[in-house]
Amino acid sequence: MVPRRQEFGHLAEEIAASDVVLLFLSRGYFASKACAIEYEAAVRLGKPLILVHEGNENKGGLPLEQARRDCPEPLREAVFSGRPIVSWQRSDAFQQIALKRIVAEVLVACGCDLPRSVARRNLHATAPADGGIAAPSAGPAGFEDGLKPETWLSGTAGLFARLSLPTVSAVRGEKVDHGAISLGSDALYLHKEARLVPKLRAGPLTLAFSRHNHGAREIALEIASLVAGCSAAEWPLSDPPAGRVVPLLLLDASTFGGDSGERLAGEVRQWCAQRATTPLLLHAALAEDGGCPFEEVMQRTPTDLVHAKLYSQIALPWFQQPDFRKAALVALSQELDQRKAA
């Protein structure tokens, strides 16, 4: 263990007084003496850990596997094994998801010993249809009979969480199995949180994809199944399109690479030649999503496509992790709606 040094104050004591410890994994985190005092104390005291990963290397981040390797080997399993890791994001919609996941992890970590005040107040509410904040009301019938209620815990900044309690004893402050509590970001919502566009306002639109763009087909079919007025079709189109055509291009570690790279480039050239069909770009940046930094995509992109201003628009972020994927689909639906309405 790293000895506590005077210049670091009482970090170990502060960890001991904490209920949950959040580790923000950025470049150099495990090389920091101050951070070492904190995570070593947290492991030694058995404190619940929440891992938040900064993957953007331009913001001081590093690949997740590098963070694992940087962690001292004797502590690696205790820090990482079986523990969910929250990917930190800076774009508003995706940062909301990251914050919700952090709150969810805190609630799960503390859910084994919920405050008695929650049991006394017996809060219960339902998510309003219009996306506003629900007001707490009387608890559900049968609460005192040992049923499994859903309790809404109010937080700050308009954040609400619905926690499925395994038994009423959990509400009364008794210890329960930590693994019996499950809380994802779907159980949390924010006031004025972005919503999926259910129907395109200005009529039908065809989202075109290339078979040589790995992953684009699945995304196009998924958004078409969620948004009325949107259909998906492989390029080149075999039938007359329904309304305006918007090509979809997924930028990841495989784009414009390998045997299919030139065939994809040929189809993208067709899109660029038809100025009315500006491609909609999605960018997967995380390595665990099969992504890569945008600079790597640029290096593989044929020069003529760069000069044709393929990247004149900002690409929407894309993720495979379910919570972030839902937010990406919301952003995609809004972009399609705006393009059609323009």
Rank of each mutant, 00 (worst) to 15 (best):
T151N: 01
D177S: 11
G146L: 00
S182G: 14
R83V: 04
P247C: 01
P236T: 09
L226N: 06
G61M: 00
E54K: 02
D304H: 10
F143L: 15
L286C: 06
R162C: 14
R275N: 05
A331F: 07
I219D: 03
P241M: 04
W152H: 08
R101N: 05
R121N: 13
L25F: 09
F294Q: 05
D19W: 04
R263S: 15
A202R: 14
L251Q: 00
E65M: 11
A34M: 01
K175E: 13
V103P: 13
L281V: 12
S154C: 08
V171C: 11
A135E: 12
P279Q: 00
V103E: 11
L281S: 04
G179K: 03
H53L: 01
E234Q: 09
R121E: 15
Q313N: 09
L281K: 02
K309Y: 14
T126R: 02
C112K: 01
D92N: 07
G173T: 02
E222N: 08
G46T: 07
G139W: 05
A138F: 08
A224P: 14
R325C: 10
R269H: 05
G111W: 05
E295V: 15
P322E: 07
E174R: 09
G132M: 00
H53M: 00
I97D: 12
E13K: 13
E54S: 02
G173W: 03
P317N: 14
C110E: 10
I102W: 02
E54W: 05
S260K: 11
L165G: 04
L11V: 09
E7A: 06
L165T: 12
A285K: 04
A42Q: 09
L165K: 01
E335H: 10
R300A: 04
T303W: 10
I219Q: 02
L332I: 10
L281N: 03
I102M: 05
C71L: 08
T126S: 03
Q89M: 03
L165A: 11
R275C: 04
K192L: 12
S164L: 14
K175M: 08
C112E: 09
